[in-house]
Design a protein around this nucleic acid. Structure first.
Length: 278
DNA sequence: CCACGATCCTGCTAGC
DNA sequence: TGCTAGCAGGATCGTG
């Protein structure tokens, strides 16, 4: 599941390879629903002949910035990968979009589960509106205990639910939420207003810590994540709780439990992350 | 504001 | 061995 560190790693990989290249062709859309606000024909018309100016990330979206304020935003959801291939590379299954650049490089959107989405924006205003409607601040920018405390004020929902809310903080998903809460010693079911300022301070530091380490290790390949070159990340070997149900907590040895929050699996050390603060 | 359930998809796994 | 049922999971939407 690509979350902030995986998307950041992909964006960096793409930036190295495709900035400055012009689009020759756009093709291969076999699944119209992945283009909620455009079509293959419109996408081709918007991109062919235009140069890639930069590749950015906002939340879990990769942003391909082209000339004339044209931006393509890609959300990979669970199983999507953005892969660079050399000219003439053999086709691969589950490819739902292929962008050919002038030097022959192919950028493929490969997504077995078909949950991923590709959006086209024709002006920076359109993109800004889209982002403002659904994404909160970037956790790696200016997030300290005070900022997080301010954002939590008045919120009484479960802390993990809030961390997963992209409008609250952008880019955190199930895996890094569990890791950050373990790091901070906070139970995922705690209500936001039960957190002390010290809890919030630790949580802010933990969020930044797990995300930074995730980026340093080029992402977590827990299921299907690959970077732009098709290489898995390295962070899966360093997870403390995610996917480690019944294994000993690395801090205290208590078996990690797996509980459900909403419909999603949540991993917690019942000893390091007590539900009632006593 | 908050919780919960349904929805979208398909590869994988557990169970028979 | 082969089949099937059910799960996973981010975001969105509807209901309570």
């Amino acid at each position: 599941m690509p979350e902030l560190p995986e998307v950041e790693t992909t964006a960096r990989g793409l930036r190295e390879r495709i900035v400055g290249l012009r689009v020759r062709d756009v093709r291969g859309v076999d699944w119209p629903r992945m283009l909620p606000n455009t079509s293959e024909a419109e996408l081709r018309h918007a991109l062919v002949g235009r140069c890639v100016l930069d590749v950015d990330r906002r939340g879990k979206y990769v942003l391909l910035r082209f000339e004339d304020e044209t931006t393509v935003a890609i959300h990979r959801k669970m199983s999507g990968n953005l892969l660079l291939r050399r000219a003439g590379a053999a086709p691969e299954v589950h490819t739902h979009l292929e962008v050919e650049l002038l030097d022959g490089t192919l950028l493929r959107f490969v997504d077995p589960r078909k949950f991923g989405r590709v959006y086209l924006f024709r002006s920076s205003g359109e993109l800004a509106t889209f982002v403002a409607e659904r994404l909160g601040p970037e956790p790696l920018d200016l997030l300290d205990g005070q900022v997080l405390l301010d954002r939590l004020r008045g919120r009484r929902g479960r802390i993990k639910t809030l961390l997963l809310d992209q409008a609250f903080l952008a880019g955190i998903g199930n895996l890094y939420a569990d890791e950050a809460l373990w790091e901070a010693g906070i139970h995922p079911l705690r209500s936001a207003d039960s957190l002390t300022p010290a809890d919030v301070q630790r949580l802010a530091a933990a969020i930044q810590g797990v995300l930074r380490l995730g980026i340093e290790r080029r992402g977590t390949s827990f299921s299907s994540y690959l970077d732009a070159e098709g290489t898995p990340g390295g962070n899966q070997d360093f997870l403390h709780v995610y996917g480690r149900a019944n294994e000993p907590c690395p801090r205290c040895g208590t078996p990690i439990s797996r509980i459900l929050l909403g419909q999603r699996s949540t991993h917690v050390c019942p000893s390091c992350q007590p539900l009632s603060r006593s």
